[in-house]
């Protein structure tokens, strides 16, 4: 028993009245702030502040072996760290199920939408580029899925492409950009106290019954993930898909705005 039980009553009371923190709409994001290139040592990086949620994404690329089933492509590896400095309940230690789910959902959205043009990451027989996407949660206040996806896509979109010359990796100097094939973003909804809302903050998320993440580009849904113990009806899913296509226009604009060209 702690403060959260009391917060729960309060949040439920407000949501049934149709009110959210700071007068936010049920289908609005909190303020989104993206900073690109915070970690110049990495091939690409982006820090997002979505309300009080803060996620830093770093992109690294190394030369390695292609996957056996895709010998002429580069590979993608996504990892998530819920750092103990980000929330009092996060522990040090091996990745929790929560962190693994976050990494996999973000990874699927990026992979399915062909955001990275992996064919262009092939170097020579037995050699290709491995792209490491690390999601670093620095302050938790809800909706890690969308903040991590946005930051990851923005980081990739602004990444440099290292060169491989004479068995050596060149990461500095005049480099091309990482080949990008598409842009996709995600929208995550949750049902809290019977009301479906977009972009839950930490205290709303604590009391969410069910969650749905939808990743899409301009034309297609690219990945979906339902989470938590509750359920949606097919009709509800249709509506959320439709809402995501509308919302994702804003998000794509934000990502496009991070690149000068």
């Amino acid at each position: 028993m702690n403060i959260s039980t009391i917060t729960e009553q309060y949040i439920r009371e407000r949501l049934t009245k149709g009110v959210r923190e700071n007068g936010r709409g049920m289908m609005s994001f909190r303020d989104i702030n993206l900073e690109i290139g915070k970690i110049p040592n990495a091939e690409g990086s982006a820090e997002i502040n979505l309300g009080n949620t803060k996620v830093l994404v770093g992109i690294k690329m190394d030369v390695g072996e292609p996957m056996r089933d895709k010998p002429d492509e580069g590979s993608i590896m996504t990892g998530a760290e819920l750092l103990p400095l980000a929330h009092h309940s996060y522990d040090a230690g091996p990745p929790s199920a929560e962190a693994v789910e976050l990494a996999r959902v973000v990874d699927r959205g990026i992979r399915a939408a062909n955001i990275i043009d992996v064919k262009k990451l092939f170097i020579e027989e037995g050699k290709s580029w491995n792209v490491f996407i690390d999601l670093y949660v620095l302050n938790y206040d809800g909706n890690l899925f969308d903040s991590a996806t946005l930051a990851a896509v923005a980081a990739l979109y602004n990444s440099r492409m290292p060169k491989y010359e004479g068995e050596k990796v060149i990461r500095e100097g005049n480099l091309e950009k990482l080949p990008i094939g598409n842009l996709a973003t995600s929208c995550t909804y949750a049902k809290v106290a019977g009301t479906t809302v977009l972009d839950t903050d930490g205290s709303e998320e604590d009391f969410a019954d069910v969650r749905m993440t939808i990743s899409n580009d301009e034309k297609h849904v690219r990945a979906m993930q339902k989470g938590l113990g509750g359920a949606f009806t097919p009709g509800e899913v249709d509506k959320l898909v439709e809402a995501s296509f509308e919302k994702s226009k804003e998000l794509r604009k934000i990502i496009q705005g991070t690149r000068g060209d």
Binding site: G18, N22, M26, T196
Partner: peptide, 8 residues
């Protein structure tokens, strides 16, 4: 009073 907002 924060203004209640409609969905969508």
């Amino acid at each position: 009073q924060p203004q209640p907002q409609q969905q969508g």
